[in-house]
């Protein structure tokens, strides 16, 4: 892939699932970021990414939740109150 050439919307949509999974290699990921950051009209890019993100968010639901120790909140609270 030519790193200078802008990715097309069709190319982004093709990669949206892997992008949402953080499974792209660096060059492809950076190309996706640049594509999203550009202005103007997009051809289904945001929709494709949103749907992929929704699926990836759900995947964590098959894991048993783990209650953090009380000290963890105290550490966070200490930081934000500084």
């Amino acid at each position: 892939m030519n790193r200078r050439r802008d990715m097309t919307c069709a190319e982004f949509v093709e990669k949206a699932s892997a992008f949402a999974l953080s499974a792209l290699d660096d060059i492809e990921r950076q190309a996706c970021v640049r594509h999203l950051a550009r202005g103007g009209q997009h051809g289904g890019c945001r929709q494709a990414l949103a749907e992929a993100e929704a699926v990836t968010a759900l995947l964590s639901e098959v894991l048993p939740e783990r209650t953090p120790p009380p000290e963890l909140w105290h550490a966070i609270e200490d930081r934000v109150r500084r």
Partner: peptide, 18 residues
């Protein structure tokens, strides 16, 4: 002034939010 990038969950995607 940066482009307003909407990459959050869309209306149609909300159907599969947890």
């Amino acid at each position: 002034g940066a482009p307003n990038i909407d990459c959050s969950v869309s209306r149609s995607a909300v159907a599969v939010t947890p």
